[in-house]
Design a protein around this nucleic acid. Structure first.
Length: 262
DNA sequence: ATGGCTGGCGACGCCAGA
């Protein structure tokens, strides 16, 4: 079968309705084939289905009032849903995980809990969620099909992934327990695509709204695309559409992507 | 060491984000 090239992207939109024009403009300019969205901050009925369809994308979503919410988009195709929510905790009602087959790739859109303040119950929830993710991901990494886990992981993997590690010392995103859980996930056999492509070079995906951090490129790398063995062999390029972060009324995250052949 | 910014909720201040 002839190989095809796909652009797979993840974007924490920080409110899909608040930032719909930013999202639509990015889709039009960059034309990704597969998109994972996080932080919809919208209920299921408030999802802007018509506008997304008019832009040329099929979509599935898992909304929630006020917070969280994840979605998957396929350019000129309807995602085929394979999972909604992580297994093993029926009491967890937060909308943070959605999985589907799109253009021949198994794709997860995940919004890992922030976990602040730490220590405390929110940090415990984060670590528990990571344990469940790692348990579920073991069933995906060795699949003979291409698989990508992408989203806002809320993990700063190393001190090279933050403009100033000292100022984030107490943050849940940088704690040893957080990093250990993420490292254990990678050790299952996942490829951290941005780090693989950029090597030692600095690359960020999030810049907070304070002190003109976006313009000064003082950011964090917390949005990740993890490729299973089958997909990692086809990794060609990776990048961050930082221009989206510099637009008026922007999300605090930028779209982060890979180009792969399958 | 702290607070700086932004948005949702629902009624002006509080919470959550990272």
């Amino acid at each position: 079968m002839p190989k095809k090239t796909l652009k797979l992207a993840t974007f924490n939109v920080n409110g899909i309705n608040t930032r719909l024009q930013n999202l639509l403009r990015w889709l039009e300019v960059e034309q990704p084939d597969v998109v994972a969205l996080q932080e919809l901050k919208a209920t299921d009925t408030a999802f802007p289905r018509a506008e997304i369809e008019a832009a040329g994308y099929g979509a599935i979503w898992q909304g929630q009032q006020s917070w969280n919410g994840v979605a998957l988009l396929g350019r000129d195709t309807e995602p085929v849903e394979s999972r909604r929510g992580l297994p093993w905790d029926p009491a967890d009602t937060q909308s943070r995980y959605l999985e589907a087959a799109i253009h021949g790739v198994v794709v997860a859109s995940l919004y890992l809990p922030n976990g602040n303040p730490q220590p405390g119950p929110k940090f415990d929830y984060k670590l528990g969620w990571m344990q469940r993710l790692n348990r579920h991901s073991r069933s995906l990494v060795e699949l003979p099909h291409p698989v990508v886990l992408m989203g806002d992981f809320n993990v700063i993997p190393t001190d090279d992934d933050v403009y100033d590690p000292k100022s984030w010392k107490k943050d849940a995103l940088i704690q040893p327990e957080t990093r250990k859980a993420f490292s254990e996930l990678l050790q299952q056999g996942w490829t951290d695509a941005l780090r693989d492509v950029f090597g030692q070079e600095r690359v960020y995906t999030f810049w907070d709204y304070f002190r003109h951090h976006a313009e000064r490129d003082r950011g964090l790398r917390i949005d990740h695309l993890l490729l299973n063995r089958k997909l990692a062999g086809g990794l060609k390029e990776a990048g961050v559409d930082r221009w989206v972060r510099l637009e008026p009324h922007a999300s605090d995250h930028a779209p982060t992507w890979v180009k792969v052949t399958i």
